[in-house]
Every structure is written in C-alpha cells, then in structure tokens.
Amino acid sequence: MIGESGSGKSLTALSIMGLLAESLEPFGSVTVTGQDGRHTQVVGTAEGDLAAMRGRDVTMIFQEPMTALNPTMRVGAQVAEVMRIHRTVPDRHTAAARAVELLDKVGLPDPAEAAKAYPHQLSGGQRQRVVVAMALANDPALLICDEPTTALDVTVQALVLDLIVRGVEARNAGMLFITHDLAVVASVCERVLVMYGGRVVEAGDVQQVFTQPRHRYTRGLIGASDLDLTRPDGRLYTIQGSVPSAGALPHGCVFRNRCIHATVECESQPRWEGSGPEDGFACWHPVRVRDAQGVGGS
C-alpha cells in the first residue's frame, strides 16, 4: 500500500487490527481469516475477541522499534510473552526456548545472550529484528508492516526486508506492506494499492501499476519518485502543490486540486473502473497507454 502522509494508509492498517481511536466510528466490514480458518468480523466485535485475534491472526511491525518494545523488559521475555498470552506454547520454559529459537532465526548473533538484553542495549536494526520475531512468533495469517524500515539505515533495511519476506513466505502468510517508497514495494510486493486522500485511487499488479499507471496521481507519484528520470531541462518531474490535510480535501475526485488534467467533470466522484477491487482505478481522465510514462518510459 503506497501513498503520502495523510493518505489514510496507517488508519487502514489500524482498522484491520481493530485499533482505531474511540473517537472514530468505523462502518463497512473487515473480515480476518486465521491460519486455522477461523473468521473474525473486526467491525462491531467486542474488544475481548479482537484481543484474541491480534497478535495471533494478525500482527504488526511498526516504524519505530524502540517505541514498539517495552524498555523495562528483556527482549527474550517480550517475544515469549506473545506466545504465552495466546497460549500457543504449553508452558513458560517452552516459550523461553522458542523465543531464543526465533531470535536465532531473525539473525541476532548469540541469541541466548541477546534474549537477556534490554532494548536499549541493541542497535536499531537488531531491535527491529526482535519486533519481527515477535510478529512471526504465533505464525499469523497476516503480517502488517507499517513503514518497518523507514527508520533504518539502507544497508540494514536490505537485510530486514529480506528477513520479513522470508518469514512470511515460510508461514504461507499474507503481508500488507505500507510505505511511501515505491522501490521497496516493487522489491517485496506482488500487488499494490495506491491511496490518496483516504481513498484507494488505483489497485493492481505491481508490475502493471508501476509500468502502466492509469490514475493521474499514480503517474505523478512514479514520476516524482524516479530520480533517474528528468525533464528536458534536467529537473525532476513534480506534482504541483502539496497533500491537503484531512479536513481540506476537495469533493469529487480528491486529487483534482493538484491535477493538471482536472475538468468540471472531476467535481463529481469518479467511478471505479476495472474488474474488481483488486484491479482498477478511479479517474475521469486516466492515462492512456499511448501517453503513459511509467518507469522506463521516455
């Protein structure tokens, strides 16, 4: 899932977890199916049942590992706690042993010693590895990653991304990966949702969306991200203006006040064009194939 700040990416993730603030009232439906085939209807379900789902069927990796970990608890105990709460292991000793095993799998050197460390004694990359171990401990059906590598150095990012993808593949789990970095999406995802102003404006296969974008925003975003692609005057392609705040979005097409192709038509909301929610776009003036300028375009 890609989009800029304020596009609604994180709220979407939180609504899947049933973690929206009390002041927000969700409607519509979210169904989570666990590895054991058990369904949970997130909207309208009591907190107690959601707590059973969270950390077992759906887990999440956040951007900042230091705030995701408890600073007063040894990391091994934190990994073990996730399994004990959901009773996925028979007893304390098994949980502790399994935590060390998980820390080993995520590549912490000397996992038995690392399990005894407190978060502040580890580097940023190591902390994020601990968070990955916690997120994978109960073999979830869905792993949500909200900008998991944005706070990490680029060489550490490469290793952590690899770790996450391998963990997900080994469990045959689904992954929802949220980022503003298109290159990261292209490296780890198969399908992509493009969000803007709280709506999905385009969806599809990564290859197709990034090489032949249809929504004007998607195309603008790809152009602005690509530092290897410049205009004839040597400058970068840009999108005019900036992302409006949540209260200041235009009615109709949410992107129309920044779109150079906007017309009167755009004042009403564009229909979703496509085969279904998995593949399509909502734009009155989509990019036609002949003037498409995705990656590799002229």
Binding site: D181, A186, S187, D228, V295
Partner: peptide, 22 residues
C-alpha cells in the same frame, strides 16, 4: 547494492537479492 531501485526491482530484483548483494 542495498538501495532498492524501482527499475531494477521491476526487472525482478527481490529483497533477497538486495540482502545477498549487500
């Protein structure tokens, strides 16, 4: 090697390749 790039990623360079090359 570690920095993901859109073009190479679309050409099939995965996270595993990034990590291995790094």
């Amino acid at each position: 090697a570690a920095a993901p790039r859109l073009r190479t990623a679309l050409a099939g360079r995965t996270a595993a390749d990034l990590a291995a090359d790094t």
